[in-house]
Design a protein around this nucleic acid. Structure first.
Lengths: 219, 219
DNA sequence: AGGACTACTGTTCGTTTGAACAGTACTTGT
DNA sequence: ACAAGTACTGTTCAAACGAACAGTAGTCCT
């Protein structure tokens, strides 16, 4: 049902970007001749490109209207996907896993967030992270000691991966994932002793915490 | 230096709104004849209005460009002011007090936030609110028992008001403002005994907490 | 080998559009 | 009482603009 995104050619992408840029800069779209002049070709080349873009669903053309170009696939309103359970093997950042999209500037977090993760336990309560909080995660596969990470743990029953927030600490080949709650035991993983009784890699770093959004007051 | 907002006539406001509406709906501005046709007058009347709007700084006209209308005073990108210290007497929501504006959807918070407040102590740490957190506040002057409120307290030395986060509780005429940290004593205020040794109202409710944004990981 | 698509040039045509000039009627401030 | 601004009508003109037709060269698919 949705539009099949772009099998746009590089040239067509250039032209689309030019239109977007001019729209932002001027407040109104360029004319066909504006486009032609900018790229150094004839007006009809611009027209051909516009028709190609229209055919591919990127723009809509109002016949006989000067500058009658409407962007269809426009603003990706800067937002963040809220990721739920992760299908095993699928890349973390795959937006197909998104539960919701929140209109939230990724740059508000530090480091900038790539996705959000909803906390579902009280295991990090002593770090001021409550159940239901949305944590901004910067996707990266390594972490420094003491950082709070989104750990991707394989769930044996169910066959999916789950993201859990833990404080990361590594000494040699031994990784410890600490909860910030005395009622939880730390998880200890020795990277030098692989496979053991688990089938797949039991653990990987999905990213590091860059901040937190709580959408409501505590009860 | 800034533009003096509008001493726009009602008619000019109508025309400006029409331009904005068309820009949203079509993606490009109307031509002078579009405007004339919509309002039922001649093209030159539209032109006169555009020149008046340009003279008053509402729009900019690109000469000889079809639909060459650029809105100047346009989008207030939906955001939230981050309020610092409040000058005594000034209304809380006065954006002149804003330290910064964050591009953040007020509707992310529940109830919807009117402004943000930066927490500067650890007095609410047991509610998962850490120093440096930005709390979304819904401006209202009353609260229910148990809600976390932004309390406006008068600072005797300095002559300004300061916002502090407290848990609100009221029994009859006695209001108690609890910290969520055993190291802090609750503030008790009896509304039935006014003035006492303080000059102004020592306390008022600025709003209730609707959520929280933490822009960075805890150290 | 042929069809479809991309990426252009070149020219012509008719409409859309902004610009300019001239004029009317009413209101508001000094 | 006069100047300035608002809110229009009416006409004319040239530039800007979209549309159409014809054609070339290259790539990619089957």
């Amino acid at each position: 049902m949705q539009a099949p995104m772009a099998n746009l050619t590089p040239r067509q992408t250039e032209i689309l970007q030019f239109i977007e840029q001019r729209l932002r800069a001027e407040g109104y779209p360029p004319s066909q001749r504006d486009i032609a002049e900018h790229f150094g070709f004839a007006q009809n080349a611009a027209r051909d490109h516009l028709q190609a873009l229209a055919r591919k669903g990127e723009i809509e053309i109002s016949p006989n209207d000067a500058r009658g170009i409407r962007l269809l696939r426009e603003q990706t309103p800067p937002g963040l996907p809220l990721l739920g359970r992760i299908a095993a093997g699928a890349p973390i950042t795959a937006p197909s896993n998104a539960e919701h999209w929140l209109e939230l500037d990724p740059g508000l977090f530090q480091p900038r967030a790539d996705f959000l993760h909803r906390v579902d336990g009280d295991s990090m309560i002593d770090a001021g992270i409550l159940p239901g909080d949305l944590v901004g995660i910067h996707a990266q596969s390594e972490a420094e000691n003491g950082q709070i990470i989104a750990a991707c743990l394989y769930e044996p029953r169910g066959g999916f991966e789950r993201i859990t927030l833990k404080r990361y600490r590594r000494k040699g080949s031994v990784v410890t994932l600490h909860a910030e709650n005395p009622r939880y035991e730390p998880i200890v993983i020795d990277l030098a002793q692989p496979a053991e009784d688990q089938e797949a890699a039991p653990f990987r770093i999905a990213g590091i915490m860059g901040g937190l959004l709580r959408t409501g007051a505590p009860r």
